[in-house]
Amino acid sequence: MMYRQFILSWNMDGLVTCGFVEGEISYLQERYKKPIVIIDDYDTDDLDNCINVRLEDKKAAYEMTKYVIGCGHRKIAFLADNNINLDHQRFLGYCQAMEEAGLSGSEDHFLKIRSGNRGEQDNLEELYEKSFAYTAVICASDYYASMLLNALQDKGRKIPDELSITGFDDVEYASLVRPALTTVRQDIQEKGRVAVDMLVKMLEGRPEEAETLVVLPTRMIIRDSVKKINYE
């Protein structure tokens, strides 16, 4: 891949990465030989000279699912575009909360969403049909929650009266869509600040001050996209 050549040829002292696919960080670490700080990754904890900065993804999804269950929902799905890395951790949190409540939270209830390709419209049509089997959907991001919310409302489904939807991230538009999204808030600026701070400590020869793993807290934000129901 072209970015490999750029990274290995640029005269950089260190690197902060985000969004790399599985295996790419290992490839770079073997050849780059300089400090790397990795944001939002679960596949690189054992690499030398690397620091991970991420969220309490599993815990946050667990708490959100517990909240939705506490609102009376029992038929709850999980939606993401994949089941790897941080989305997998969020799915595990959903599964844990469902299992503790004696509910089914297996991959049978994992809804896959696609975006940015020719199959997007067919996928949204499929999700519309599947949505009738549930009263709530836990989404792995605000982006996908908003996609689902808009697609279902365009076809006449009433949110949250007929289906509750939650997001993750609390991006700016999470409070602007209607209904406003109940979601998990993360501090993206703090994540970037911590990543740079850890890298600087390594570059300045203070590795003992740089934690190999930094897990940042999240906070649940309750808005209007989850309805309390009486489950029968």
Rank of each mutant, 00 (worst) to 15 (best):
L103C: 13
D154E: 15
V177L: 13
I188V: 15
K191S: 00
F132Q: 08
D122Y: 02
G167F: 09
A140G: 11
R114Y: 11
S164L: 05
M198V: 12
Q189V: 06
E120R: 08
K158L: 15
Q96A: 15
G167I: 02
D122I: 07
A140K: 07
P160C: 07
A145P: 04
T182C: 06
H88W: 05
M98G: 06
M198E: 15
N123Y: 06
T182L: 08
V196N: 03
G105S: 03
Y94T: 01
E129Q: 10
V196I: 15
D197L: 11
R114F: 13
Q89P: 04
Q186V: 15
K130H: 13
S146E: 13
I188E: 10
G167Y: 09
G119V: 01
F132K: 14
K112V: 04
A151V: 07
D187V: 10
P179L: 06
I138S: 05
G156V: 07
L103D: 08
R185S: 08
E125W: 02
A140Q: 00
I159P: 08
Y134C: 06
Y143L: 10
V196P: 13
I113W: 03
Q189R: 05
M202W: 15
G105E: 09
R178V: 10
E162V: 04
A180S: 14
D142A: 01
L124G: 01
S164Q: 09
D197H: 12
N117G: 11
L163R: 00
A133C: 06
Y94W: 08
G192D: 08
L111A: 00
A97K: 15
E120K: 09
N117T: 11
A136C: 01
V184E: 04
